[in-house]
Amino acid sequence: MLNIYDFINNVLVPAIVYSNIYALASIGLSMTYITTKIPSFAHGDLAAVGAYAAFYLLYFLYGGLWPGSVYLAMPAAAVAGAAAAYLSYVGVFRPLIRRGASITVLMIASFGLHFLIFGVLAILDSIAQTAYGWNTRNFLLAPGEIRIPGLTQSQVTAVTSTIALALILAALYYLLNRTKFGVVMRASIDNAPLAKALGIEVERVYALSWLVIGAVTGISGIYMAMIFPVTEELGWLRLPLIFVAVVVGGLSSIYGGVIGGYIVGFSMVLGFNYVLNPLGLPPEYELAIPFAIVIATLLLAPQGIAGLIAARRART
C-alpha cells in the first residue's frame, strides 16, 4: 500500500536532493564546455575545493559546525571554487588553447589538473589533521544545515538546495540576458572570431566565466557534502554521473545540465525504489539506469534534450 509520507521521505526528498546536486554541478560543466570546449575531468575537484573551504572556514572560526552555519561559509565555498577555476583556466587551459591544443589534449590536461588538485588538497588535509587533530575526512556538512523543528535534515536540504538552485539559475539568467557582460559572453560563445573582430577580449570573457563556473560548482560541493561523506574525491566520484547529466541535457546548453541533473536524480531514486528493490538487486546497480539513458540519448538524440527543444523552436 502506498503511504504518502513514506513516498515523500523515501522517494521524493532524496530524488530532489540528488537532482539538485547533479543540476548544480552540471551547470558549471556545461559552461566549461560551451565557453572553452573542455569536458573537464577536474570539474568535480572544484566541488571538493568548495566543500573543504567551507569546512576549514567553520573550523577556524568556530571550531566546528553548528546549525545553519554552512550558509555562513557558502561565500567561502564560492570564492575558493572560483579561485581554483580561474587559476585552472589562466594557468593551464589558456596557455594550451593558445598553442592550438585539441579537445583530447585539453581533456588530458584537465585530468592532470585533477591529480594536482586532489594531491594538494589531500596533503593539506593530512597536515591539518596532524596539526589540529581535526577529522578532515569522511565527515558530512549536514550538521551545519539549518534546523527547522518538525522537519528532518534531508527534508530541509531538499528545500534549501532547491532554493539555491533557483537563485543561481535566476542570477545566471540575469547575468547572461540582462547585463552587458552577458551579451559579450554570449557573443564570444556564439562566434568567437566575430566577437574578437568587434573588439571583445574573448579570453578575458572566458576567464570571467570560469570565475562563475567555479563559484557555482563550489556551492554544489556544499550540497554534495550534505549527503556524501567528504573526502578529496567528493566531486571526482560524482563525475561520471555529472557527465551523464550534461550529455543527456545537452552539451551545448547551460540549462540543459539542470534538466539532465533532474533526469539522473529522479531515474536513480525511482529505479532504486521501484525496480531494483522489488527485484532484490544490489542498490549499487542504480548506476545502470542513468547509463542506459545516456546510451539511448547518444543513439537517438546526441544533441541532448536542450538540443531537441532548440531544434523544435527553430522549426516553428
Partner: peptide, 10 residues
C-alpha cells in the same frame, strides 16, 4: 605522487 604526476602531465 598524485600531485607530482598531475603537474608532470600539465
Amino acid at each position: 605522487a598524485y600531485a607530482v604526476f598531475g603537474l608532470a602531465i600539465i
